[in-house]
Design a protein around this nucleic acid. Structure first.
Lengths: 329, 329
DNA sequence: CTGAAAGCGCTAACAA
DNA sequence: TTGTTAGCGCTTTCAG
């Protein structure tokens, strides 16, 4: 409500001086600075963000494009991103793409003029498209690697490999995999790791799904897992695993005595007291934090500053938990 | 990148005409309209939102203040709000308050100039403060009633009462309640409903907690529930219930044969196949949708339009599920 | 129906 | 260190 002019009048200085006092206090003499601040306080001055954006080209907004809001991976990353955005003094706009290339492209186009940069969580657009966006507004990618763009990923394959190794060590030969959403980049990577291991003569993998990565889907898959005769099951994520275990327990199937289970990524219940479930734990919030932090660096960078390096964050695995030797039939 | 002037030059009209063509097409002759559109298309025109906001005072942004992102109630409401925001052609900014009055007030102040309105999910500010905000930017409140402001709440007490009645009917006399976060308005309301019923001679209620409404907390409370000797347990929400049931099943305690359980609100697994858990199902997404819809109405309203009415949405309860007669000792 | 002109509130040269 | 002067790109009277 109170504008620059008003503060200027009260402080008996020009509008420019008020502007400087607010954004570059060191360019103003201490005495006038104080006067301006007092006046601003008095009238409850708040800079008009639209006017500022118009002249500076900076809005103070960041956009985060996510496939959805319904799973812990997204929610956790958003939470981390949101926290870091706040730390850098910016606001985060969440745009939901449903994993659709059209919606993603539309959101990018519409938000281009309204934000200082983008965090793209598992974007589905082509690398070329994403790089084109980056030419206009800085882009940081999460959970997908895009050459030429700063990307943050997690080493889920590394964690998975440790789980497989342990299963083999325990004597399992037949493992069910509850696949993730159809067409998902993550799932493709998982299946890749999977087939790398399945080529080993000592391990057969049965893929169930694809299915949406949800609790109810995991529960619904319980029968199929039991029918498959597998002695261990691996779920796309912790929601699915939780559904599976829940339903198994309702059928009197004990974990891990009767069946070993694990999730590919876990963030919701890694700290379960007692014996935790075996899971590859993914630092989702950290992913979001890092992405925003890197984005802020790019936004504030001078032309000659190098682009922040991409990183793959390590996962941690609790092997002790829901893994045991297969039950002898 | 491409501005109004550029389109104007190509279409051989003035900038004002282009502006009209874009925002009030009916004020422009069909022929020039077409020319302008073609030109706009050609150069890929996108109105500069900051400039537009500066003149119109409208930003196209809505802010939603939420206590956190970590539970299904919040996440579901956000998802609904986000979907409806998109439908009305606006973007949603999420501000996390951690349930702190200071952060809430700070966010309101900082965002006031950047958004067209607020959705406040379980705000903690005083009614007077919230109404003051409403004088500057329209406010709609969710999950709390604020006199004078449009509020959307759910009839959780009504649903809970049905659960209590059923428990009594089944012969339960001792019920554990896993309380929600300390100081939460929702929890106070729950406890209120609870003590209304506990005054009945046939029902004793033991409150465990308070605790954060999380899976791990429900799991951690399993022992306390068993030690309490209660024959039924009621959880603050579905995450807590899930944790509880999960841990109980790991201890060989069967649901509902050995213990009856229910959640005060449920959104994550109401559609669990087989026998669902008993829970008061809350239409969280609907809550978010309605709030944004009402907010949009207020924003577009003329001075004489009446404020949209507050509503309490009904809950639904699946009584058949995890309730059974208490086990005889 | 269209154009000219005056801002919206702020920032950023440029002078003083 | 401070004030003056132009805009930023769009919308919106007001004339024509």
């Amino acid at each position: 409500m109170a504008g620059l002019e008003e503060v200027a009048r009260i402080a008996k200085v020009s509008a420019s001086t008020v502007s400087r006092a607010m954004s570059r206090p060191d360019m103003v003499s201490p005495r006038t600075l104080e006067r301006v601040r007092a006046a601003a306080e008095q009238v409850g001055f708040r800079a008009n963000p639209a006017a500022r954006a118009l002249t500076t080209g900076r809005t103070g907004f960041l956009a985060m494009l996510v496939p959805g809001l319904d799973n812990p991976f997204y929610a956790g990353s958003i939470a981390g991103a949101q926290a870091m955005a706040k730390e850098t003094g910016r606001w985060l706009i969440i745009a939901v793409t449903d994993g659709s290339p059209e919606r993603e492209a539309a959101a990018l186009g519409e938000l281009e003029g309204q934000v200082d940069g983008f965090v793209l969580l598992m974007p589905v657009g082509t690398a070329a498209e994403l790089k084109k966006v980056h030419d206009r507004r800085p882009v940081v990618v999460v959970n997908r690697k895009v050459p030429g763009l700063t990307s943050y990923t997690v080493d889920t394959p590394g964690g998975l490999a440790r789980v497989y190794d342990r299963l083999v060590e325990l004597g399992h030969t037949d493992v069910a995999y509850l696949a993730g959403p159809p067409g998902s980049w993550m799932d493709r990577r998982r299946q890749q790791t999977l087939s790398d291991h399945a080529s080993r003569p000592d391990l057969r993998i049965r893929v169930l799904g694809p299915m949406p990565p949800e609790f109810t889907e995991g529960a619904a898959a319980a029968d199929a897992v039991l029918a498959s005769g597998c002695t261990a099951a691996l779920a796309y994520n912790s929601s699915v695993l939780l559904g599976l275990v829940f339903e198994l327990s309702r059928r009197g199937v004990r974990v891990p005595e009767d069946i070993s289970v694990a999730a590919a990524d876990d963030m919701a219940f890694a700290d379960l007291p007692g014996a935790p479930l075996t899971a590859v734990r993914v630092p989702v919030a950290e992913l979001g934090r890092r992405a925003v932090s890197a984005l802020a660096d790019i936004i504030e960078a001078t032309p000659e500053t190098p682009r922040p390096p991409s990183r793959t964050l390590p996962t941690t695995v609790h092997l002790t938990g829901s893994l045991a030797a297969p039950r002898r039939e």
